[in-house]
Nucleic acid binder design. Structure first.
Lengths: 206, 206, 206, 206
DNA sequence: TCATAAACGAGACGGTACGTCGTGTCTTTAT
DNA sequence: ATAAAGACACGACGTACCGTCTCGTTTATGA
């Protein structure tokens, strides 16, 4: 996950592959128990059965570590095939809401976004590891809907990208705001409501 | 802004009113320069020309202080009268985006939201001081649109509230995600695009 | 013991006088148990029931702290009145040897002398706190011997000082070398032997 | 110098003989530049162009390494033949003072003596490598003086040994104290002064 | 006018975490 | 088997903030 290539035929003892996994798992466990602000790298290292230096050799700080630990959570997202575009979207949004309901995601995600407002490299890391990585769902969903004939083919690819970005901002933003700021559950009722507004609005746009 | 009533005819030296303003201003200045995570209360006190004890007598910690310092920023929001619902919304969204472009808001807002995921009292303070306080804009906007005949009167008030909440989550969420996560400007083009989708979707909903 | 004057009508909370004594006592206890090289300032602070910052506020590091802790040990030295110069000297040398037999002195003294070879300020601190402070014994002893008529009055004061320095280097050096390097006890037999050589040599010098 | 015998007809790659010398030289260089307390074994290994493991294979730690590095310095001492006992002693003492004026000796010697107060094996190593090894100078000096008729033959060999020890403690102790603690040069004037006192005292003793 | 009492500045205090460094061991590839 | 390289567990370093405390001082009220 971190940029460093894990060595080739280099001299010296190679980095432990197990340590990486243990550290990320320990980070998520600490997020659940303590939340972002009380999470300490010393504690994470202890939980992972690893020395602090080992942790610092791989990650430059708390923010980078948490981004990687949280990013893995979103890889669980799958685009379900529920037969219609609306149903597919609802399915993904519900999965997304379910992840945001987990404390390791709640605690960590907003914190690193907050930090990223003053750290360009961190913002880029978030974009790569989380945002762009999951934008695939929008792309896949549109392709499937076009195959079904629910959506027309895109004429202009620039325009298609702009629309994908808009959708992503609206969906991710609304769900995050609903669950973290308004602190209301993004349950089936709300998701159906939201999806209808979104799809109708988009349909008229084309 | 903080809960404690500042005394009435009590004996002893009264609390300095100037200190409050100085502290909040110093907090915003520190947010601009340092960001949330590097902001320290000792530094804020120094900037405000105040002892640390004075600060702690009024606020219980960093989070509460930052919520109050940031909340004041959003009180600048005004619902402009641009002649149509769409134009009014665009106006408010642009103002909102402008505030989110300011570093004292960017740094502070997401951080306290992140902290609030593990602190019920803090979440409530955010809701009161920021979210509910600005929801007035949605209410006013709808009332004005109904007066113009652009929207029908609401039959069910529960339903009206639910719609207001949905709108707020979508608008606030989308703008925040666009500016902070995607790190793209919420400029006039994007706002027009977004508003059209939102309004069309909502119209069909009624 | 440390240079800083303990405040005088200054603002702010005054430094705890008890902390100083507790820290020095804890330092000696740690020297006994652990020796100089395994002594850590964190451990000393814990033993003294004090925060590390409190310790660092008063002493700049391990060396300065140990000098002060050890210096107090030598203040116990008293010039006994045993009736003759030789007997007086034997008495002081035996006391000196007894102090050097205590582990808190053995561990600490040589270590700070070693460090002082690369730290001018530390060397000066040792001279002030230990060496010059105990040179009083030589001065007193000579005065008493002159009063008894055992030694003539000094004509040249520069010469007197040079002799005092020589005596001090020979006495302190020989006892230290005997106890720490040769690791043999400086017992009554050895002390009597040594004193006889020293006094005879000095007598012939006059 | 170190206890381990460097292999005979054993299988495998033989130990590099050059490495030993390089390590000891690097140790002395590091003592000059950094002093004992800032000297690190990693740095010594790097200076010697050797891996840390190679160093640890030969010495068990910093103290042992420094003892060996410093011990070599004292092997330069030679008993000069200046015609009289007093002149011979003065010559040796001046040489000894010259070695103690070199930073690699100053830094290292007292430090290992300090450490030896809590490490019996280290004390023994110092005695063997440095103290007993140089006591030859006292023995040789006495023999030469006896040959010249300046000193009588010793009747009791136990007594002779005791006297040699006393001389060694007084000489080594006084010079070390003069140069390291009093931080005054052991120059010709001082050495002549000191030697006269010592010899007169010893003469009367017989 | 003068005592009372709270707020104030200053800064020391006991803690906790930081990120770095040194130690001595271990694991790899190369000789 | 030894060598160079470097990762590893461990533990101390000295610093920075935290939130609390104890001072001397200031500024109001009400007796």
């Amino acid at each position: 996950m971190q940029s460093r290539t894990p060595a080739a035929g280099r001299p010296g003892r190679p980095r432990s592959a197990a340590a990486d996994a243990a550290i990320l798992a320990a980070t998520r466990a600490a997020l659940v128990e303590l939340g972002w602000s009380k999470l300490t790298l010393g504690d994470v290292a202890t939980r992972a059965g690893v020395a602090k230096t080992t942790l610092y050799r791989r990650w430059s700080g708390k923010n980078e570590l948490v981004v990687d630990a949280v990013a893995e959570l979103f890889d669980e997202l799958r685009l379900p095939d529920r037969g219609s575009l609306a149903a597919d979207i609802e399915g993904v949004v519900l999965q997304f809401a379910a992840i945001l309901a987990r404390p390791e995601a709640r605690s960590g995600l907003m914190a690193v976004v907050a930090e990223s407002t003053r750290d360009e490299a961190l913002r880029e890391r978030i974009r790569e590891s989380i945002v762009e990585r999951q934008k695939r769902l929008v792309i896949e969903g549109r392709a499937r809907a076009q195959a079904r004939g629910e959506l027309p083919e895109e004429a202009d690819s620039t325009d298609a990208a702009r629309t994908a970005d808009l959708i992503f901002d609206v969906v991710a933003g609304a769900v995050v705001h609903r669950t973290l700021v308004s602190a209301e559950p993004a349950d089936e009722t709300w998701v159906r409501d939201f999806t209808r507004v979104l799809l109708t609005g988009l349909a008229a746009r084309g």
